[in-house]
């Protein structure tokens, strides 16, 4: 059943239905880590990696749970897989780039509670994607997440030098910028046809 082409799935996940700006998944790191451009980019890379692995694992688990007829265990097993993947990535980064490990700080283990990753696993199950489609979907979602994070970080680096009314400082300003960014991404809606 090839109803959607792979390219469309990719475009859909990364731009048209951007996980952060259209589905509000992964807002916590979006607000938390988007202060500096370099950190935001690396965070995005880590998220793409976790997404790819947990998406493939979720595909396998889903098939297994259908086989043993226990769909109510879906949520619990997904979250366990994601938590272990994050643990793996954490050890990997700590070994190969201690500076990045420090820069990401608490937000690295918090990828576990990043809704974007659990959301990805749930969406691909709901949409009934096959293995290749799931992989492309995960890649698109990860790149879309990184794109949103990097755009936001770039804007916020500039905003640091702007004069903002005291009342709007902090989260409120970030939310306003996020709203405008989300508006611009709605322009991609026509792409899917």
């Amino acid at each position: 059943m090839k109803t959607e082409s792979l390219w469309f799935i990719f475009l859909n996940a990364s731009l048209i239905n951007n996980f952060v700006l259209a589905y509000f998944l992964g807002i916590c790191p979006f607000l938390g880590v988007s202060g500096k451009l370099s950190t935001a980019f690396r965070m995005g890379m880590a998220v793409i990696f976790v997404m790819l692995i947990s998406s493939m694992a979720a595909y396998g688990i889903h098939a297994f749970l259908i086989w043993v007829d226990a769909p109510f265990l879906q949520l619990i097993s997904y979250i366990v897989v994601i938590a272990s993947t994050v643990q793996l990535v954490e050890m990997f980064i700590k070994r190969f780039s201690p500076s990045l490990f420090k820069a990401l700080g608490i937000f690295l283990p918090l990828i576990t509670t990043n809704c974007a990753i659990l959301g990805l696993a749930l969406f691909q199950t709901n949409k009934g994607y096959n293995f290749i489609e799931s992989f492309v979907f995960a890649l698109g979602a990860g790149i879309g997440f990184t794109l949103a994070l990097v755009l936001m970080a770039g804007l916020r680096e500039k905003l640091d030098f702007a004069e903002v009314p005291v009342i709007a400082k902090g989260v409120a300003l970030t939310l306003l910028v996020g709203g405008i960014l989300s508006l611009t991404f709605m322009g991609f809606a026509g792409l899917g046809g």
Partner: peptide
């Protein structure tokens, strides 16, 4: 639409910030 969520929450936060200030 999604962007409305950002704006509405930002609006409430502005209001509460104002009250606090």
């Amino acid at each position: 639409l999604p962007s409305g969520g950002f704006f509405a929450l930002a609006g409430w936060l502005l209001l509460f910030n104002g009250l606090k200030l």
